[in-house]
Amino acid sequence: MKPSVFWRLADDIPKPMSTALMVLSIAVPFALWWLVASLDLVNDKFLPSPLQVAQALGRLWTDGFLVGDTAASIMRVTVGFALAALVSVPIGIAMGAFASVRSLLEPIIGVVRYMPPPAFIPLLVIYLGLGEAPKIALIFMGTVFFNILMIMDAVKFVPKALLETTYTLGGQRRQALFQVITPYVVPNIIDTFRINIATSWSLVVVAELVAAENGLGKRIVLAQKFFNTDEIFACLIILGVIGFALDLSLRGLMKATCKWAVD
């Protein structure tokens, strides 16, 4: 029996089919939402229609909240994640390259990374107050350990023969570390960031739900107080779109800088 195109196992499908399915992926849930909302099955206080959400978006835009809150959230994610990246790259590479550093750091990181970052919020507030610092610290803590462990794993996959070749070409250990191991794992580092930045995007909202003066999380809390579900929907869509854009831009960065690692 000929396997149908749709169920091809671990194989590509024709481009038009893939494009059509990708359009359906967005269009079907959207159409369902529109349908349910327009049939008045649910009170529109609970389920606003796409139109109402669009109007809410417009309102947030003209009030200036949309730009202000989005900017505040993006700022926190950027600073927190940038700090985590700055710390995790050297530590991750060092742990992957040196068994000694691995033995020294892996146990403690292994334990701490299972402590849920939101559980640290009360402590962070006690230590750092209510300003930007605790939010940035939360994002940092929530992503730095996973970044480190994933980069460490990537280093372990650097082929041994590549390092030995370097030595037989006259290379020193230092050169092997900086000129062979490090460039080899750059694509893995970008991928690691792409995966873990999603976590930081969740954590910024968690932090803003607890205590903040602005940010998309704060906007959601305020909308809840006034029962403005349309604004909540609007904020959720913004969060999704920005997250997706971040993902795409990191994929783009990978394609632009690591042609050798992209098919």
Binding site: A161, L162, A261
Partner: peptide
């Protein structure tokens, strides 16, 4: 580097 080595596996730096 006085004893250059060619390995069985491919050892070109892919980047």
């Amino acid at each position: 580097s006085d004893r250059g080595m060619i390995f069985q596996s491919y050892t070109l730096y892919p980047w």
